[in-house]
Amino acid sequence: MKRLLLLCALLLPALPLHAESQPSPQLLETLEKNAGSVRTLSSDFVQEKHLSMFKNPMTSKGRLYFARPDQLRWELTAPVASGFVLKGDRGRRWHERTGRTESFQINQEPIMKLVSEQLFAWARSDFAWIKKEYRVTVLQESPALLRLEPRSAATAGFLHHLLVGFSADGRYVKSVELHEKDGDFTRIRFQNTVVNKALPADIF
């Protein structure tokens, strides 16, 4: 037992080196290359919001569609049907309960601009942009699990870090966790992901 404790004591300082390391260029290159082969993508998702202002996590379900280079549809199906489509520099949002549909320009809505930048960066695995915006550490090589901390003070003001998990083949994101500074976090799990299948023309 003592020898086991000694071994643990010796190994413990080394553990973070394995658990959290600077991303190897090959890993990011591989992820980018694998994601580069993705022309279209559709996926179900489940979102859990762990917010202190709620007694229980808020769970919602929906579906994501992406088509290179700049079309994306984020659609909630439960508990309320709503969502938005991004296409180039324009967007359209809808809400089934209120019956409201409205178009918008992404650049005119600072929050949507931030959201669209994030969504497109992950959908395209645009690591050039990601590395510019975040300090990236690798928590796990395969399947890849990255931890990202915002570089800009403005983003760091509300976002503490992101945890992004990739599929086994590294072609798409499997899960995302957004950890806010106040301890609240949001987890999104992507399921039934289909890559490079033709998408209905009117979906965007």
Binding site: Q47, K49, L51, M58, S60, W74, L76, P79, V80, S82, G83, F84, H95, R97, I111, M112, L114, V115, L119, F158, L159, L178, E180, T186
Partner: peptide, 10 residues
């Protein structure tokens, strides 16, 4: 419902 959307964090 706004909190459920991606921009809800803001």
């Amino acid at each position: 419902e706004q909190l459920l959307a991606p921009e809800g964090w803001a």
